[in-house]
Every structure is written in structure tokens, then in C-alpha cells.
Design a protein around this nucleic acid. Sequence first.
DNA 1: ATATCCCTCCTCTTTTTCAGTGATTTTATT
DNA 2: AATAAAATCACTGAAAAAGAGGAGGGATAT
Lengths: 205, 205
Amino acid sequence: MATKIFIVDDHYMVIEGIRSILQEEKSIEWMGHASTAASCLAFLQKQQPDIILMDINLPDMSGIDLCKEVREKYPSTFIVGLSTFNQQSFIQRMMENGASGYVLKNATQEELMEAFQTVLKGKVYLSDDVSQTLRKNADAQIPVLTRREKEVLELIAEGLTNIEIASRLFISTTTVDTHRKNLLAKFDVRNTAALVKYAMLHKLI
Amino acid sequence: MATKIFIVDDHYMVIEGIRSILQEEKSIEWMGHASTAASCLAFLQKQQPDIILMDINLPDMSGIDLCKEVREKYPSTFIVGLSTFNQQSFIQRMMENGASGYVLKNATQEELMEAFQTVLKGKVYLSDDVSQTLRKNADAQIPVLTRREKEVLELIAEGLTNIEIASRLFISTTTVDTHRKNLLAKFDVRNTAALVKYAMLHKLI
DNA sequence: ATATCCCTCCTCTTTTTCAGTGATTTTATT
DNA sequence: AATAAAATCACTGAAAAAGAGGAGGGATAT
């Protein structure tokens, strides 16, 4: 039985590329593609592929969040993350949300096929570059932020002062200050500038 | 005579996608592709295509800088920027550096062909989404930074204080402060946090 | 029930940034 | 050689953030 593959990516060129790569593979059944998270979810209500190749940058929802939702609703469908970004923060969060693999958009046909075979066995597939990135930054785990910390972080990055943030969130300025200090500690940085850079780098804001 | 096309992009899937899209076009001659700026420049020493489709994210050099270099050395070759990012900062800087067009990676075959035809006539082609983005942010031009301002900005984002930056650059702290103030003014922001966010957003650091 | 995490609030001191003005010297550019 | 742009330095005062420490209440999970 052929493996049913579905793609979620908003770039026509990438879709065409994958289609062209998989065309001659007899063991693959191309089920189609979606360019938004919404249309992906709509498709899944009718049919379930074996594997979804999922871009992490989608117009309506983050692929990272979509991954979580799909895994919860359709646990029998495996998800392989697909991205141009070889960054541990993305990979880590994608895997945390139930992805079975992660490949980059420069993956070859062989890599892609190997990823599918590995994932179907219930194992995890990471391309060489990706697993290298993970190993390299094994110590530098991205910190997990609380709901409040995220809110404060976003307002900080927008340029608001503690006083302004406090009045926006209806809390005391000292509380905002505490959150700020916790953020600095979690990210292991010395000041706001480095904090914002770090957060932007890992797409936390 | 067929139009000679060359692609610079480090993503195999995108290359395959474009090749597949252009395959049936008789008017197009596919000259090949490069996945790094270096191999692109090496190729150009031997052959000159009519149009280069150039990704702005390359492993060894920014496509924006590569664009400038190629335009200076080979003025008869037109360049069309290619990116997933529909951001005015990228588009603007690409065009400033001599690109004749800018298309997104979700461009259709028709758009691509239209882009080529327009560019060959010496005109500028921007896909609908892109020109819309430019119009929308016509007022919010990204500021041009001086060499020193860039240096200071980078050190600020790394979390250094004025005193540290001063000693790193062998200048007075008041000078650093002046650069800092100029940066805030140019970006029209109130503090470091917003400055760093803005700079990261537009990939200036 | 008790341990843990999150959110909340407080004081005090030191350091850094922000705002406003003004000015001199280099370095390009025409 | 003239002009413009960039880089350099300085002073003052106000505002904000960073550093250190302590503390209580509420939710949740084991």
C-alpha cells in the first residue's frame, strides 16, 4: 500500500518542487496540498494522510501550533516539519508539539524518502544538519515562558516602560519589574537589549 | 532567441519547483543554478545569463549584497529578487542595489513569466503582493545607517552598555551615546527595546 | 496536605539610558 | 577647494532599568 502524503506550505514553488521530487516514487501517493492551516484542518476532516509535511511558517497560524492541534485530533497521522530555518528553537518546539521529524527545504529526494520510512516505523527522523544543530545547542535550551511573562515581554519589545506596562496590564510597576527580572534570568542576559534580540531570534515575539 | 535564466537559491526543493514550472516554457533556457553566492560569481565569470533569479537568503552572503556586486560587474544581466519574505525592508534594499524585480516564492507560473518579460524590457516588475506592501509602508522607509551606527547597534543588541561599547570601539562614552541617540531618532523609537526589535525585524542585525 | 509554580507586591541602591544643546574634527563627494 | 556627511566629544538633569532581597496568596498536581 502506498504511503499517503499531504503537504502544508504556502509557497507554490516548494509545492511544485516536492511534487516533482516525489512524482516518480511509486510508493508515494500524493494526496494534495494546503497553503493555510485552515484548509489543512478542513482537508483532514474528510481524509487522513499517513504523513503530513508541514511548513512552520504559514499565513494564518504557526505550523508549530498547527502541529499540536493535528496530533491531538488525528494521532494516527505523523507530521514532519519542513522549514528553511535550521534553528534549534523551531526544531525543539516542533518536536515538543508531537512532530516525528524535521527536514530542511534543501533536503534531497533520498533524505525525504528516508524521513518518510523512518517516521512510518514510529521513529524520529532528523536530517543530519538538523540533529547537528540540536546537539550543538543541547545545553542552550530555550526557556519556557509563562503567560504573563510573554505578555510583559511583548510590551517591553514594543518600547513601553514598566509604568506603562503596569497600567496596561492593571498590575503594579514592581510586579512588572519582577517579571522583567525573571525574563532576564531565564534568558541569561544582562539587559533589555539582549533580551529583545534573543526573543526575536527565537521568534518568541 | 530563448531567454537565459539562472537561479541562485540554496533550497533544493525551490530549485526543483522552478525547474518544473519553467520546463515546458519554450522561450526559457535553463542555464543551471547555484546554491551559494560564491558559486554564482564563479559561474558568471564564464557565462552570463539574461536574468538571475536570486534568493535573498544565502548561506555565504546576503542576496542583497550579491545583487549589488553582480550588477556592478555584469550590468547587462538583470536580477529578480526571490524570497519568502514580503517585507518592505528586503524589497527596498534589493531594489536599491539594482534589482529589476521581486517575486515571492508562492508566485505562479504566469507571474514568473510576466516578471521575466517585464524585466527584459528594462522595466521593473513587482508582484501584486509586493507592490502592495511597498505602497502600504511608503512612509515608513527603513533608515539608512552609517558604518559606525551599525557597529554600535550590533553591540547594543549584544547587551553591552555604553561604557563597554566605548572601550570596545576605542571612543568616548559620550560618542557612543550620540550614536545611540541618532539611532533612536532614525528609527523613531523611544528606547533600546523597540530599537532592537525594529532592527531585528528588518534584519539589520 | 504539602510542595511547587505562578503571580503579585514591596524597599533600597546603583547603574544606565534618555533628552536637550552645542561644538570640533575627519572623511567623502562634487 | 568647497560642501556635505559622518564621527567625534562634552555637560546637565531627569527617567528608567538593573541588582539584591524579602514576602504573601492562589492554583495545581502528586
